[in-house]
């Protein structure tokens, strides 16, 4: 399971994602996914910069 903390940097998140990718699919596949892992880490970091209002529920279907 990917372990992320609120103050993690993009690099921290990418490291966590990569470690999980290695566990699931092995070192070679994780290396092939390097660019996607970096992009996903950045996306997760961007989301982590915003704290939703405590009463805000998910939308799912609009």
């Amino acid at each position: 399971m990917v372990n992320m903390k609120p103050n993690d940097s993009v690099e921290d998140i990418a490291r966590e994602l990569r470690a999980q990718a290695v566990r699931l699919w092995g070192e070679q596949r994780a290396s092939e996914l390097e660019t996607s892992l970096q992009q996903t880490a950045l996306q997760l970091w961007e989301l982590g910069q915003v704290t939703p209002h405590r009463d805000l529920e998910p939308g799912f279907y609009q």
């Binding site: 399971m1 990917v2 994602l17 699931l24 996607s36 996903t40 805000l56 529920e57 799912f60």
Partner: peptide, 25 residues
Amino acid sequence: SGMEMGMLIPATKYLQAQRLRRQFR
């Protein structure tokens, strides 16, 4: 690779994205 990224994303982050999306709408 897109679906594999999806397999790595924690449920809390998915729900965070859905919460922020509702605000955005």
